[in-house]
Amino acid sequence: MSLLEINNVSKIYGELHALDKVSLKVEKGEWVAIMGPSGSGKSTLMNIIGCMDRPSEGEVLMDGIDIAKMNQKELTLIRRDKIGLVFQQFHLVNYLTAVENVMLSQYYHSIPDEKEALEALDRVGLAGRARHLPSQLSGGEQQRVCVARALINYPEIILADEPTGNLDEANEKIIMDLFHNLHNEGTTLIVVTHDPEVAQTAQRTLFLRDGKLVRETVNENFTGEIKYEDWTENK
């Protein structure tokens, strides 16, 4: 059984089909990238996978459970148990320190534990900046706090939306190295990006256009040798 299985999912706003009969599977421990131009449906797909939106049609199976028909409260409970979110804009609470931002995620999930939160910050190389407020951290440091917050509850999937979109090259490398480490530890990663270099680091890249999944590339051995597998709109 796949960790995530999406079958014929559509999201329709009036005349607009933000997603049109999209089907995909993500296996446990896999690293998948989703690419596509603006308006291709990336965000809509992210929201549905992240349990922040429901599809108009189709089924979304997470660990075999269909979450497509769940209400907001049930989706929230699934989200806090199974999903770790990394945002392009970091979205840290500005009046909480780095360690408190990590603990915030623990608070909603179970019980805040400062020691464990400090260990998570240590994993992303920010043990020395734990008591700093977001305004005292660089963009790269803020993103690392965001990663620590995403992984603190040991989620089944880490869902990252343009995680390097606001970072310079050095910080982009740090974040991608962190993702590599997480992947090596068995964490499932789904990364939405418009950056081909970031996408190429994933095992598989899915291409969206006009709400449809149009192509999939598989990077079989993570060596940079990317093998294209054509998808047609009729497939």
Binding site: L77, R80, D81, H91, N94, S105, Y108, H109
Partner: peptide
């Protein structure tokens, strides 16, 4: 935005 973030992190309305 902070409220949205907290909800994204798993906060229920009551919380």
């Amino acid at each position: 935005r902070e409220i949205g973030l907290k909800k994204a992190l798993g906060a229920l309305d009551g919380e």
